[in-house]
């Protein structure tokens, strides 16, 4: 008999879980009270599949569980993943930051001025040293969410606003920050971002600008659009971006390339990332409900691995691997 599963939440975690369940033959319904996908924190994500860079501050498990994400997304959405690595740079006075970053990470090459120019001609002559993480990739989170939703719908997944849990064999809750207060240990970490638009420069891959106070990443979205992110503030409100954050982002973007001074600020946004005290995600089970939460700043990176673990639990395939 086909198992009927309700997935609550249409953010990156919910959609990834739905895909894993469908691929294993379950009958899946996705319930999301808000229209579209803009209510999810993942709508404001950078979309960087960068487990090696994240290792700078994240646990080893983020690297081991995130490694498969690039292939997973490539299979799920052929043509949407750009596998051209990540460039990490620092201003001359922060050269020590590059060394520190290198000492915490692996899977990179050191580049000199020519190496930077070869990868990103727009940054030619601006940085004498850089780190290049060739195995990393990125995608556009908004396109990815929308396309994954369409594909799931085409595969027979019903998308509804609200649904009665009782009609299903199992419920998988992927409702992120809305569980703050009811899920033990879960807290919100505010992230702010903005979109800049300029046709004065082109980048082809995510660039991280290290700075001791104001680290910044810029992800090119094509057509002159650049996503800049993201703050990490221990607070769970999603109110508008603050003047300070905006000022710091723009300063850092300008330091990366002066052409950003003439860019238009076309959007600012704020999301609340759900996180457990160790900033690592969990797959939890309580009776007929499975909870996937705490993806912190690693939604696109870790959803595939968590979705696979959750689907294994749902369909009773769980081996003796530790689930956490």
């Amino acid at each position: 008999m086909t198992m009927r599963v309700l997935v609550k939440g249409a953010g990156v975690a919910g959609l990834a879980v739905a895909r894993e369940l469908v691929s294993r033959g379950a009958d899946v319904t996705v319930a999301e009270p808000e229209p579209g996908f803009a209510a999810a924190a993942s709508w404001y994500a950078g979309g960087m599949l960068a487990p090696w860079c994240e290792r700078e501050s994240a646990d080893e498990s983020v690297l081991t569980r995130g490694r498969g994400a690039v292939d997973w997304w490539d299979r799920a959405l052929p043509g949407e993943v750009r596998r051209n690595g990540t460039l990490v740079v620092a201003l001359p006075r922060d050269a020590g930051e590059l060394k520190r970053f290198a000492s915490r990470t692996s899977g990179f090459q050191w580049l000199d001025t020519d190496g930077v120019a070869a990868l990103e001609p727009a940054l030619a002559g601006r940085f004498r040293q850089a780190l290049f993480f060739p195995e990393e990739a990125h995608l556009d989170p908004r396109r990815a969410l929308s396309l994954l939703g369409e594909r799931l719908a085409a595969q027979g997944v019903a998308f509804v606003r609200d649904e009665d849990d009782g009609r299903f064999d199992l419920v998988v809750e992927c409702t992120g920050a809305s569980k703050i207060g009811s899920l033990e240990g879960l807290r919100g970490v505010r992230g702010e971002m903005l979109y800049l638009e300029t046709d004065e420069l082109e980048l082809s891959r995510p660039v991280r600008l290290l700075h001791p106070r104001i680290p910044l990443y810029i992800v090119p979205r094509g057509d002159g659009l650049f996503m800049c992110g993201a703050t990490m503030i221990e607070r769970d409100d999603a109110g508008p971006i603050t003047a300070r954050s905006l000022m710091e982002f723009l300063n850092a973007a300008y330091a990366l390339h002066p052409a950003f001074a003439e860019a238009c600020v076309v959007e600012t946004g704020t999301g609340v990332r759900p996180a457990f005290p160790d900033n690592l995600p969990r797959v939890l089970r309580a009776g007929n409900t499975i909870i996937v939460n705490g993806l912190y700043r690693h939604g696109f990176l870790l959803s595939p691995a968590l979705a696979s673990e959750a689907a294994g639990l749902v369909l009773g395939e769980q081996d003796r691997r530790e689930i956490f």
């Binding site: 703050i180 879960l186 807290r187 503030i233 221990e234 607070r235 769970d236 409100d237 603050t242 005290p277």
Partner: peptide, 16 residues
Amino acid sequence: RRETAGGRQGGAFFEL
């Protein structure tokens, strides 16, 4: 300052 701007006092981090 940074964690309470916006008027919300306390929050999960302060609890921790």
